[in-house]
């Protein structure tokens, strides 16, 4: 049992090492950073610049955060500070369900609803012609997928703030919202940042749903109405052919390793913050 208990900690390292070992062939040919920041992607010529994909990921993630953060935080504040018990009990399973829906389902829904919405309504509204398969569509779908993460982590953070602290603010004649703004949000700031970072890393690695709506064009997006090609989508789309082109699978494994590194960084950061918040509350 003791041996098994050491598995989780080592698994993280093992995955990282495994991916880098498999990426070694391409790292032997080209320096790491030139691969990261080169925009040339043509596997047949041996160009494996990951920059467009990294930027694609960043764009989609950014859009999703802009959409998800205000909605999620307001929802979390409502549920923890305003809602009566019955509403809270009613909403919690809904948020759990939202978290439990498979990403393919989000993808199908995105294709059915979000893509036409972007292509036919939002883009023309801004005077742009667009197929709808865009960074924006990916961002919208992703935003909904990270609602549950941000909401539930924020809820945990808010519940760790002593009720008496709110009472102190209320007893001074502050309104509920003033109490939320000056006390709850302020006291919970670190935890909220952690919640957002966790949502961000979720968005970063999400694959299928984004892949289905984002257009998959290996070019740097210049606006939210351009198609994009995030890293996870690159991995998913090319699994079939990667054995036939030299260095291709090494390049993809490098992409996976980069993805993992970024996600690990954000995750560890967020968890460290949360551990601190928890310890202070205890």
């Amino acid at each position: 049992m003791l041996v098994l208990t050491c598995v989780p900690a080592f698994l993280v390292l093992l995955i990282l090492v495994g991916l880098f070992v498999r990426a070694r062939p391409i790292l032997a040919e080209k320096p790491f950073f030139s691969l990261l920041f080169s925009s040339a992607w043509s596997p047949l010529k041996g160009d494996f610049g990951l920059f467009p994909f990294i930027m694609g990921t960043l764009w989609v993630t950014f859009v999703s955060l802009v959409l998800a953060v205000p909605v999620s935080l307001l929802t979390a504040v409502f549920l923890s500070e305003y809602a009566p018990r019955s509403v809270r009990e009613f909403t919690k399973p809904i948020i759990d369900l939202l978290a439990g829906l498979p990403s393919v389902i989000y993808g199908v829904w995105g294709v059915l609803l979000v893509v036409p919405l972007v292509g036919r309504i939002i883009a023309p509204f801004f005077g742009v012609t667009s197929s709808g398969y865009t960074v924006l569509a990916g961002g919208i779908v992703l935003a909904i997928m990270i609602f549950p993460t941000i909401i539930s982590v924020s809820l945990e953070v808010f519940s760790s703030i002593p009720y008496q602290m709110r009472e102190a603010s209320l007893s001074l004649g502050a309104t509920k919202w003033e109490t939320v703004r000056h006390v709850v949000l302020k006291k919970g700031l670190q935890g909220i940042i952690a919640a957002i970072v966790l949502g961000l890393s979720r968005a970063f690695g999400e694959t299928m749903a984004v892949l289905m709506v984002v257009g998959n064009i290996p070019r740097l997006p210049r606006s939210v109405f351009d198609g994009g090609y995030p890293l996870p989508a690159l991995l998913a789309n090319n699994y079939g052919e990667m054995m036939s082109v030299p260095l291709y699978d090494a390049a993809l494994m490098l992409a996976a390793a980069v993805l993992l590194l970024v996600v690990l960084f954000f995750n560890v950061l967020a968890r460290l913050i949360l551990v601190r918040v928890e310890r202070r509350a205890a």
């Binding site: 602290m165 209320l170 007893s171 004649g173 502050a174």
Partner: peptide
């Protein structure tokens, strides 16, 4: 209600300084 509360200062069991 805020006017009511303004008329009263509260000292709680454990002091609750606000996070500032």
């Amino acid at each position: 209600v805020t006017e009511v509360r303004k008329k009263m200062g509260l000292l709680s069991q454990r002091p609750q300084p606000l996070p500032m």
